[in-house]
């Protein structure tokens, strides 16, 4: 694929206190690519994902989304942190889906989806409503628009969360273990919604434990362990023939 990558990470470091969680991450994601990030818990994959939309500040390295440095401005070789408003403007372009859904419990499904377009993008409420209804229909929840999150199952909540992120028309979607908090029988409906999104050409980074999804939908697979990228390649190849010992050890436990 030619041109600018959608996401480019170069030697990204992140520490919490004295614990180094990311020890130099290099990842490139092309537009339209579905990149699945797998690895044992504590390997830093969620932390990396949260660096992409600046929920976590990186300590060293560079991270670009669509050619723009995330969270910082470079003048000479010095980095200056962006102001709150500028960070918010960058985040508008990046959708995020959380493990614990994080829907707004005091709003209905429809209100959850309308909230950001109206409050942040200043869209016309009627138009935002039309689009929100279409999005909820797309994730199979046309009949749940008036329900509060507390009235929905986990799978339904997560699909509302996907619709909520899509309502901002993001150019990149981040999924942070979107099915890990779900009962097993509800995982499929969320993965289906994500698969449909991938087929529409959305650029996605998916932190997941669902190897089947990675194999079927992913364009690339990144295996992380202990804060570094151990192995990366097309999902089928990595899953079928891991080259690295650590990858082999991990896959033998989860497959």
């Amino acid at each position: 694929m030619s041109g600018e990558p959608m996401v480019r990470a170069e030697a990204v470091h992140k520490s919490f206190g004295r614990t180094e969680v990311l020890k130099g991450i290099d990842i490139t994601v092309a537009p339209g690519e579905v990149c699945c990030v797998v690895g044992p818990s504590g390997s830093g994959k969620s932390t990396f994902l949260r660096c992409v939309n600046h929920l976590e500040k990186i300590n060293a390295g560079r991270l670009w989304v669509d050619g723009e440095l995330v969270g910082y401005r470079q003048r000479g070789d010095k980095l200056y942190e962006l102001r709150e408003k500028e960070v918010a403007a960058q985040r508008r372009e990046i959708g995020m889906v959380f493990q614990r859904f994080n829907l707004f419990p005091h709003m209905t499904a429809l209100e959850n989806v309308i909230e950001a377009p109206v409050q942040v993008r200043r869209e016309n409420r009627a138009e935002a409503r039309e689009r929100a209804l279409a999005l909820l229909e797309r994730v199979g929840l046309a009949d749940k628009t008036g329900h509060y999150p507390g009235q929905l199952s986990g799978g339904q909540q997560q699909r509302v969360a996907i619709a909520r992120a899509l309502a901002m028309r993001p150019k990149l979607m981040l999924f942070d273990e979107p099915t890990s908090a779900l009962d097993p029988e509800l995982v499929g409906e969320v993965l289906d919604a994500m698969k449909a999104l991938a087929e529409d050409g959305m650029t996605m980074i998916v932190v997941t434990h669902e190897m089947g999804f990675a194999r079927e939908v992913g364009d690339s697979l990144v295996f992380m362990d202990d804060g570094v990228v151990v192995e990366t390649g097309p999902p089928r190849e990595v899953l079928a023939g891991p080259r690295h010992e650590r990858t082999k050890a991990f896959l033998s436990k989860v497959l």
Binding site: N53, L55, K85, R91, R92, N102, A116, V120, A165, M168
Partner: peptide, 14 residues
Amino acid sequence: DEGQREAAGALGMS
């Protein structure tokens, strides 16, 4: 819950 603030922040809310 802190996740509420994160979700709003990720949507670009001030």
